[in-house]
Design a protein around this nucleic acid. Sequence first.
DNA 1: GAGCGATACTTTACGCCATAAGGAGATGTC
DNA 2: GACATCTCCTTATGGCGTAAAGTATCGCTC
Lengths: 251, 251
Amino acid sequence: MTVYAGQGDAHRSLALLWGAAAEPRTGRSGPKPGLSVDAIVSAGIAVADAEGMAALSMRAVGERLGRTAMALYTYVPGKAELLDLMHDRALAELPAGPPPTDDWREAVTAWAGELYDCYLRHPWVLQVSQARPVLGPAELAAMETLLRALRPAGLPPRRLRGAVAALWQFVRGLAAATADARAAAAVTGVADQDWWAERSTRLAELAPDFAERFPLLTALQSTAGGPPEEGHREAFRSGLAILLDGVAAGR
Amino acid sequence: MTVYAGQGDAHRSLALLWGAAAEPRTGRSGPKPGLSVDAIVSAGIAVADAEGMAALSMRAVGERLGRTAMALYTYVPGKAELLDLMHDRALAELPAGPPPTDDWREAVTAWAGELYDCYLRHPWVLQVSQARPVLGPAELAAMETLLRALRPAGLPPRRLRGAVAALWQFVRGLAAATADARAAAAVTGVADQDWWAERSTRLAELAPDFAERFPLLTALQSTAGGPPEEGHREAFRSGLAILLDGVAAGR
DNA sequence: GAGCGATACTTTACGCCATAAGGAGATGTC
DNA sequence: GACATCTCCTTATGGCGTAAAGTATCGCTC
């Protein structure tokens, strides 16, 4: 399942993301709010972290706060907007300070590692459609951080845009692959390696001509050793190295 | 909304993907099948192409075939497996032959362009969770094609894996961004440019300190001209150039 | 050719989901 | 005290995936 975000009223979403709701309107009557947007977002993240995206329902979030699903609608226009807020809150965990080093390679590597780890801490973020037109402050801050890290590389604007896109998507994609490997292991209760072994056997039965159809893939696979999770980490490292080499080449 | 695939019985899914269902079991009684897995997958793709992923329901697919939703379950174990099949069928549109040229840069560029276009023809594919452990033949064929294109570059295995991951994820991510820009334009009925202009105005109201908080982002944005769709295409080109430079650097 | 088991497909039903509508009770201003 | 406002609830609507069970149709066996 993939979950759409940003399909709701984009204006409401933007306002909430940028904290317009934080200003407590004065001179209001009625009972004191027992909840807050922040609390709801936190509850949503707690549910998604613990039970996964599939279990994230308005009911579940409300229940965690001791309310019904409908109580949330006082604070949040709908589920799509809640997802937007959750997304940005998760990315807010990323460090925002100036890069710790002048070496841009090192700085970008650190940035990528932080983003990768953040995604793995909150795998459900990877299931929020990346096709989100709603930009939150944390997401923009992360981009600003990347730009700051990349600054010493001195890229021209056009190339800089390409580098940012390539780096971001690469980290996101690799994190998704890693998160999935973990999820598969968790769901089946089977160790990563065994699961893939079983899958390979099954595949060999169904496609006995595998090696002939995909010779290069077969050859590449045969050179891989160690557990799959380590494989992802290695792909992360070497893919990032390629990207950085490319950035360096085009200065 | 993101849609999970590969959460169903992985074995059934694999078998269907690799065409085990194609062998017509002999000596069977009962009425002749009026449908087929292929027809159902085609109908699913037709629905998703026309109405989007959110409108893809078992009922909708059945209706397009003149059946009820439950009729599909004779052929397909569930929606997750249907999504797996749809995903692989979409990728089967990619050309599979040997690279048209010996120049690996050109070959990889062509491959990336094909994948990018394929994603844009079927944007819903981008909403199928990329965290799919189920590998179909078309997806593997696309990887094999990429490996074939990359072969003349002579990368060592470790680096080759990184390159494949980086290239694939980059194309997918950029396609997702482009698809979203289109969707936003289509939904609102507003031209791309106007939509972003409105959004920028709104943002400027909500975060008047934007330029100070995100100076590099602001600077980079100011150098961008032309419609957003063209911006994505340019990011695609320059990001790909960076990746290829990186590949070349690490030979 | 009668009967029977397998198969395709249907209807019905269950338990979810997001959320629209409207009502109850609490809290503030006048 | 009256009233407006606000939170939160109950109820209801129309969707979803799919389990269960029923019906009709076909082909094989006797």
